[in-house]
């Protein structure tokens, strides 16, 4: 079924399956702590790629490297949208302008704004009216405001948050805030959407809703999604490919079925010899893939 949307939510021009983001040997250190070690990963257009791993495995660090909040000491992150962009040298706002949107693990919405204003703020990179026109709210500024109001209404419809559009975000429940945060990222018209634990702390029903929205976003709009999540059931059901991190290293990558049977993954999750984990790299994980 194809729903009618007035506006395209996806800004990517690549064909499904083409390489969109290529992470090469990324290494990230914080002082003496190695958060990521030689991580290589490829993200393809219009797929749902899940990144899983135990707490502290470096999943969020990897997303932070992609969106420019951390600068890896080693390695390259290349983004393709017709031409190649090296992301490790760019500032977060420049990376955002290329079409990489994200949500955060701990909700980082603009708390004092309404849901509508949060979504409009998400579309910031597309608004081009000059300051004078804005101060007068004249001609172009007014037209642009109206145009993006229609645009965010599409997102409001998609995420089923019609009833709360005038509410201040700070007053909403946790589950709804997560949903609004995803909407704000979507308002950027992203080509890649990075979601950091979009379902953490939700009940089963909210998780189902969220999974449905995520599927809608890729299936109807073709937006690529990179997802960090702990709920294995959801991950196995919705993702096309899964990458597993453990102690900063990628230990496996593949389809849900392959991952389910991978002995390294099973070990990392079931935690054989768990007692040595917190202090040292597990010797067996260094053999990788």
């Amino acid at each position: 079924m194809q729903r009618g949307f007035l506006n395209q939510l996806n800004s990517s021009t690549l064909k499904p399956g083409e390489t969109q983001l290529k992470i090469d040997d990324v290494q990230l250190n914080f002082g003496g702590v190695t958060a990521l070690l030689d991580v290589s990963l490829e993200v393809r257009q219009s797929e749902i790629l899940a990144i899983i791993g135990p707490n502290g495995a470096g999943k969020t660090s990897l997303l932070n490297c992609i969106s420019g909040l951390y600068r890896p000491q080693h390695g390259r992150i290349t983004y393709y949208n017709g031409e190649a962009h090296e992301l490790t040298r760019l500032k977060p706002h420049q990376i955002a302008r290329l079409g990489i949107a994200r949500s955060f693990q701990n909700i980082e919405l603009f708390r004092h704004m309404t849901v509508l204003d949060n979504l409009l703020a998400g579309a910031h990179i597309h608004m081009k009216t000059n300051l004078l026109s804005c101060l007068l709210y004249w001609g172009p500024a007014q037209r642009e405001h109206l145009q993006y109001r229609r645009f965010v209404e599409d997102i409001i419809d998609l995420l089923e948050i019609e009833a709360i559009r005038y509410n201040t975000v700070g007053s909403l429940s946790y589950g709804l805030q997560k949903r609004v945060e995803m909407g704000r990222a979507l308002a950027m018209r992203p080509s890649i959407l990075l979601l950091d634990e979009p379902m953490a702390g939700m009940n089963a029903e909210e998780k189902e809703d969220m999974a449905r929205f995520i599927l809608d976003i890729t299936e109807e709009h073709g937006v690529t999604i990179v997802l960090i999540e702990h709920d294995m059931g959801v991950i196995m059901d919705i993702s096309d490919r899964i990458a597993v991190l453990n102690f900063g290293q990628k230990i496996a990558e593949g389809t849900p079925d392959e991952i389910r049977q991978n002995p390294l993954v099973i070990e990392a999750y079931l935690g054989e010899e768990t007692s040595v984990f917190p202090f040292k790299f597990h010797p067996k994980t260094e053999t990788s893939d």
């Binding site: 909040l69 706002h93 603009f110 708390r111 204003d117 703020a121 990179i125 950027m188």
Partner: peptide
Amino acid sequence: IAIRDQDIAASVMGV
């Protein structure tokens, strides 16, 4: 306002 409320999120939104 975005900078006031969450400057990191604002920068990731392209501000």
